[in-house]
Nucleic acid binder design. Structure first.
Lengths: 370, 370
DNA sequence: TTCAATAAGCAACCTGCCTAACAAATGGAG
DNA sequence: CTCCATTTGTTAGGCAGGTTGCTTATTGAA
């Protein structure tokens, strides 16, 4: 019941809740009483218009609690604050500090603290912090390995610093997984239960959702599509593991090719611009990248047959690339996969972290209330 | 509670059931009363040995009901009869009749009827028939498409004939999916929650289980690994769709190669025998097949990172091939996938069908009892 | 033979939900 | 403006499914 109330963007009436969760009005009556007593529900007006007595509207008050989401990405650290329902209250981001985990976590806790203090949630109890991390999570959900794109090459505990700084429950997940959950919650995957988010940025990785649940895999390596056979030989999960189909190797390849009009491109934006302008090496390079991405998409489709594949990331966000990769993938798979562009862009992971925080806080609240 | 009782291979006591399902003894007491009244439980003795009063042992009596499982495969039609707990009572198989769905379904219903009549379950109510079918199931779970390896090229309703012949609930599923569930229930995947079964027979296909649930995919095409990019160009899902890495194309390739000592092999067994004997073209062909299978395994690992990949089927069952493919796959993926041989062999699909029948019957019984 | 330990069966009670009934608002028909 | 159909808010009582606590019946071992 509380769960349903937390899901509502607008205030709702008791009769609505009754029919929505299949309970009788008296049951909802007492449930709302309990929630009001705990400060988790709040009458905010009357609904009129229809014949009959007008119903009281209820919502979860902002003072009931705050949620924090932190995304530690390769290029930006993002913080989002919301109320318990996940409604955005404040958002901040900064370029990621270097090098390594300790510096970045310091930056992130600072940014979170300042955002919190400057917001109207400063005095409200913070229920949960969800952190989106760039690497593979250990089994206890605290330590992150292979976070090479923030220059953290050893396993690093991202949990303790946040827990120590704020003394609230902290939950972590991988940022591709969270991007997938973000797209499902507030993005283009809203109606989907089985889909993949393929992020092509510095490297390439996928977050896979099956029947609403993130696939993690036996080694936490589900979605590590950088290891698909078409990309060739054995590789260790190391600093350069993800690069073959990612932006870094794309630019590296660019430098080693002849025929540029002037300097080779140094950013993917530049590369795409020059490809659009028809510059030969750029066109060829982009076409090869499209083929690689199409191959990843086709492989995912052949194995799990998702309802859609969402492309995102610094490279994957490009509309022409998406269209071309989708076209090439269609030629490989008899049932045409639906390839779509991210709806949340580089905010997908924070939004997913908000969702994770909301889920986690909800579970904690459920232990007390219905 | 009933579910738990059905899962037990040996008779169990009420205190055991109480602690196993987290209920109090009085609750179990009344539940067992209900079940006894309906003929679904049965005292079969006393448990002694420990100090204290000896507990009564209960089990589901054989007369409570029968389950039937039918596997319609490319080479054999198999029938298994069990009691409600899934304990095997009778098993029969025959080479598959040709051509096409109607003939085979006639054969299967006949075989089921004769097996039933000859068994000691003849007078017991049949609760459910589960049918393992060689093709893609339609959304309503009745019609099967792409059943090319039984020479049924049009969609064909496998449900109605069984329902009409026996007047009991009939449930269908794809035979690779059921092989996966069979391996999980009674085979080598007993401890696993996320794994893939790769069947290499005439063609190649995979059944994928994620957290205990079969992945089906948006088009029912999850596990259609014949479409993985390394196998090349676009192909329609048609009569020859699955062949490139399967036994049929293997033998086809054999005929088109030079260097055989005498006739080229006409069966995969012969091919493997001659490869083991060191005959050059056979060795080369088997090595190529191992590489293809390794590539499939590696692709599955890169996308879903299963706890294990189970190999089965006329080609996939070969121990040397499994060892070699596992070795090649390990060279492609940084976290070594566990590649194992099927524990149930060509019976996996029927066993999986028994499991499906048991699940389905259980659901129906649950509607009546706890 | 006695006793500690355990199972079996019974009674009373608790919780979460329901239905039934009634009181309180409300918009619209007259 | 009044009345009424309609819908919400609230209370009371009941039922189902579980609980705990007690008594009685068996059992193995001291």
């Amino acid at each position: 019941m509380l769960g349903l109330l937390l899901d509502q963007e607008e205030p709702v009436t008791r009769p609505f809740l009754a029919s929505a969760c299949g309970l009788s009005r008296p049951t909802i009556f007492t449930a709302i009483q309990q929630l009001e007593k705990r400060g988790l529900a709040h009458a905010v007006g009357q609904q009129s218009g229809a014949p009959g007595r007008s119903a009281t509207l209820y919502e979860v008050p902002e003072e009931a609690g705050a949620l924090a989401a932190v995304d530690i990405g390769g290029s930006n650290v993002r913080v989002v604050l919301t109320d318990l329902r996940g409604t955005l209250v404040a958002e901040q981001h900064q370029p990621t500090a270097r090098p390594g985990g300790p510096a970045i976590v310091g930056q992130a806790t600072e940014l979170l603290r300042s955002t919190l203090l400057a917001s109207r949630l400063a005095a409200v109890p913070l229920h949960t912090i969800a952190v989106s991390v760039p690497g593979v999570l250990s089994h206890d959900g605290r330590t992150v390995s292979y976070a090479s794109n923030i220059d953290q090459f050893e396993p690093f505990d991202f949990h303790t610093p946040f827990a120590d700084a704020f003394h609230v429950p902290v939950v972590l997940d991988n940022n591709v997984n969270l991007a997938a959950m973000g797209e499902r919650w507030r993005g283009v995957a809203r109606e989907l239960s089985t889909f993949a988010v393929v992020a092509v940025g510095a490297g390439i990785g996928a977050g896979i959702v099956h029947e609403g649940r993130v696939m993690r895999g036996a080694h936490g390596a589900a979605g590590e599509v950088a290891f698909l056979p078409p990309f060739g030989k054995r590789r260790k999960v190391d600093a350069r593991a993800h690069d073959e189909a990612g932006g870094l190797s794309l630019l590296h390849d660019a430098r080693s090719r002849p025929g540029w009009a002037g300097e080779p491109p140094t950013t993917v934006e530049d590369l795409f611009r020059r490809a659009a302008a028809g510059e030969k090496p750029a066109v060829a390079l982009v076409e090869e990248e499209c083929a690689r991405i199409a191959s990843v998409v086709a492989s995912i489709c052949a194995v799990i047959d998702p309802e859609a594949v969402v492309l995102t990331g610094g490279v994957g966000d490009n509309d022409r690339l998406i269209a071309r990769a989708a076209h090439l993938a269609e030629a490989m798979i008899p049932f045409p996969p639906s390839v779509i562009r991210s709806g949340l862009g580089d905010r997908a992971s924070v939004i997913g972290a908000v969702y994770l925080a909301a889920q986690s806080a909800r579970l904690a609240l459920m232990e007390v209330t219905g």
